[in-house]
Write a protein that binds this DNA or RNA. Structure first.
Lengths: 195, 195, 195, 195
DNA sequence: AATGAATGAGGTTTCATTCAT
DNA sequence: GATGAATGAAACCTCATTCAT
């Protein structure tokens, strides 16, 4: 699926809105088509089936996500700073598109196991980013040398994810990006050297 | 719903098995009834509807979970020790009942948003347990005095949860309880005083 | 599928009527259910899917058909008489249930190839009956000793079938059973003069 | 529909191939267009609708069929010889174009009743040819004077048709034209002994 | 004449829940 | 209390046809 066709993005954007507003189960194809301003059948010119819309949605949005963070990270010197940027951007992106946050944190998780495995493939790029930061942190002495890579990544991703989910479920009553420094400090405390 | 009626537990145990083996979507009421050895209609003498089975399932299993951990924690003197017991018991419990782990970590998450909000209510007791440990840790000087309670809890729960989920998705290839000390050290590093 | 459950036959009879009156493509499951006086879903308690209704329909009706003819044939001494009974009964049965005739001669033939192969299995019993008559006729000297069994059967079945189809397509303007003696004479004697 | 436009025949030939290879139901207009090397929309410049392709297909192919047999028959003196040529040519033609045989004997029969009625109109010319042979046979004393014209035609056509269908369904394992003499003898003489 | 992107109607099947026995 | 046969709503996807270019 090439992504430079206008209707392709039109449908994905419509899907985000419809799923966020109606929930995963009430997001019928016909509703998405209507929101996108196309006929039901048109959906199937751009997507194999309904599941393909969701995978593509995640792919497109997460892809942009990872690229953007990768770009920003390049300029940073330390692993700690890189982690800070990652948290900051993660929170900021989802904060700026609440519908997307609702979809990724709540709605897409009730898709079937198969779909979630596909989504995890997409997530891989993001997890790799975190892994690289951990490795770099250990190499340049910022993080504990005996830090378990997998566990560290699980802590970082689990904490970020849980923080966003809680924010979404609390109906975004507070500023998510403002939490970034504290979350960063917490995570560095876990990974970092006792100094 | 009283829990000392034999068929009640029979149905809940059947639900765990059926959901773990067939997945959330293939866990039809008729299948659960068959596994429990009762008629379809009998389910509705003990549960309001299908959702009620799932909430009750979580309630019963998590209730036992929290009670058990609460009991074990009482005897421990420090917040750090208490956290260690909590992690240890969490990992051990789910490690001993893989079906339950699959259900709570993977299958039940694809329930609808409403159900997950209800499940979160049940989770409250567990989160409270974590909150108490954090407060105690701050009071007796084990943890940083300016630690953000909510964030700390999110880190602890997020990390534990992500660790279990990864273990389940990796088909339980390694020992989950063995990870407890490392996860504990990581989390204490985040919450604890720089010493 | 056992056939002594009342709704089973009720649905099959309804299917014959609905298909005959509306045609194969306009015979929606909902229409058959309504005609049978049951809910749509009830159909699926007795039949695997829509195709299964059609196969079962053919099976039940043709099964009765073959049994009846087999019974009648037993009492006849010669192959010629047996053939006459077969033709007579075939014409009479379909003549007495015009809806069934429409379904078997016109509507069921537009089912997909797969379904028709399944139907051919059912037909096998009928074709075997014809084969036996041919063999018997050759053994007792009624038929030509060098008669090609397969071709003879094809002629007999093809002629009977074409005769019924023409009768159905001509809206049953004439008596089908009355044609039996002539068709019998034709098949026994062909077109040519006895010389 | 004029038939000397190149794309017209191109589309009909494509339809024969696509239907034979994919079956009636999988012979979508788009597939036929692709096989013909034209755009979907182009089909509708030459045919009113999909049904029109199929009727035209039958018309063109059967028309050629009838013409060819008519031509060959002229030179024959007796009805019996004419019938032999008809059978021979029928078998030979379909034998030489297996795709066409599959389409006419199997696939086109699962079209709707309406279409089949239209196809029968086309068939009329062929049936007339048979009728003429029967009449001639009776007039010149070759056939029985009290032969029922309609029944005789039904026997002849039914037998030929059933023979071809069986051959197609048996995946053309044997030579169809080789059967012509036997089928001819059968039709002329029937099953019974010449007495 | 030719294209092909867009349309939108329509039907089979599943499964949670009920209720007469 | 227990049963299980019956219910019926609800949605994804296909594909013949159109029409702006």
């Amino acid at each position: 699926m090439k992504s430079n066709r206008p209707k392709y993005n039109q449908i994905i954007d419509a899907a985000v809105i419809v799923i966020a507003q109606n929930g995963y189960y009430q997001a019928q194809v016909s509703k998405i088509a209507k929101q996108a301003g196309v006929a039901d059948g048109t959906i199937y010119l751009y997507f194999k089936n309904k599941e393909d819309i969701l995978i593509s949605l995640f792919h497109e949005k997460m892809g942009y996500f990872v690229e953007q963070i990768e770009e920003e990270i390049k300029g940073k010197a330390t692993a700690s700073e890189k982690l800070h940027v990652l948290i900051q951007k993660h929170f900021q992106n989802l904060s700026e598109d609440v519908n997307l946050a609702i979809v990724t944190q709540l709605e897409l998780r009730q898709s079937n196991k198969e779909l979630r495995l596909r989504i995890n493939d997409v997530l891989r790029g993001y997890l790799n980013l975190i892994d690289q930061i951990i490795i770099e942190g250990k190499e340049n002495g910022e993080f504990l040398p005996d830090l378990n890579n997998l566990l560290a990544r699980q802590m970082i991703f689990g904490t970020i994810d849980e923080t966003v989910t809680t924010w979404v479920m609390n109906e975004q009553k507070y500023s998510l990006p403002d939490l970034a420094p504290d979350v960063h400090r917490l995570l560095i405390g876990g990974c970092g050297l006792k100094s």
